[in-house]
């Protein structure tokens, strides 16, 4: 198993680069398979919400691109002259939107994996002193996400109990109490930080960074994948030029396959070596 936060940061950067730089449908499909494998190795079947959110995000660019772009020769459907969305919808526009949509889905999958593989304490301990305050803010923001979701649900339920509408029309009514609740929580967090000496001066680190050969292998594989993706990218896929994608190069395929290293290492035993920072 990979537990080192540096290894996961390197993996996430390489994964995001692969998701956004190589837009070949073949590479995107391969990357999706790789991410599903890593996900199943570290999160099992938990966290399906991330995939649902990713799927919704993936559909939006497809709809926008199909409805607004009039370029391309392969006709999907021709709508009557309705303002904005009327006219010819093309397969090229759908493919272009899908390429962006899948990239978004892959991004959500990469970020969705990190909360269960990296602890904020480890992430904070990695940061140099000048970035510590910004890092704490990020760690707190991440901790806020599930609490904000719970507050949203509670407010929605409460409005229903008081006979208010709960559809899209009621969004402003939901957002104001949600904002207030979030601000109250933020103030309480601030007070808690103050009461525990946050910002007193020089900071030390309690958690030693743990390293194993597998972590080093994961970092090496991620760096290799990143370099291959940046230096030797596959030919760009532009459906408006040619709807049928070209086969990616062997190098591009290897770069994506390297990102499966965490899934492979999950099958191997681990031996830790602690590196003390304090």
């Amino acid at each position: 198993m990979i537990r080192n936060p540096l290894a996961w940061c390197a993996w996430a950067i390489a994964g995001l680069a692969a998701a956004f730089i190589d837009r070949s449908p073949f590479l995107q499909a391969l990357l999706l398979l790789v991410l599903i494998n890593v996900w199943l190795s570290y999160r099992g079947r938990r966290g399906s919400t991330y995939w649902k959110v990713g799927a919704v995000l993936a559909v939006i660019p497809i709809l926008f691109s199909a409805a607004l772009s009039r370029f391309g020769h392969h006709l999907l459907v021709k709508l009557p002259p309705i303002p904005i969305i009327g006219g010819a919808w093309t397969w090229e526009a759908v493919a272009y939107g899908a390429s962006t949509g899948v990239a978004l889905l892959l991004t959500v999958a990469v970020f969705g994996l990190l909360p269960s593989t990296i602890r904020s304490a480890d992430l904070l301990s990695l940061l140099p002193q000048p970035l510590y305050r910004a890092g704490t803010a990020v760690a707190l923001s991440l901790a806020f996400v599930p609490k904000t979701a719970a507050s949203f649900q509670a407010i929605r339920e409460a409005r229903r109990l008081r006979g208010h509408r709960t559809g899209w029309h009621s969004a402003p009514g939901l957002l104001v109490p949600l904002l207030l609740t979030t601000l109250e929580q933020a103030i309480q967090y601030g007070e808690s930080l103050d009461a525990r000496g946050y910002g007193s001066g020089h900071r030390s680190r309690y958690h030693p960074l743990r390293w194993s050969g597998l972590d080093a292998a994961a970092i090496a594989a991620s760096l290799a994948a990143l370099i291959l993706t940046l230096v030797l990218p596959s030919g760009p896929y532009n459906p408006y030029v040619d709807l049928a994608p070209t086969m990616p190069t062997a190098v591009s395929l290897i770069a994506v396959m390297l990102l499966a290293t965490p899934a492979v290492t999950a099958l191997l035993p681990r031996t830790d070596h602690a590196h003390h920072h304090a």
């Binding site: 020089h202 030390s204 680190r205 920072h277």
Partner: peptide, 8 residues
């Protein structure tokens, strides 16, 4: 304790 800069 980390905020106080104590040794590990």
């Amino acid at each position: 304790l980390e905020n106080l800069g104590l040794a590990r």
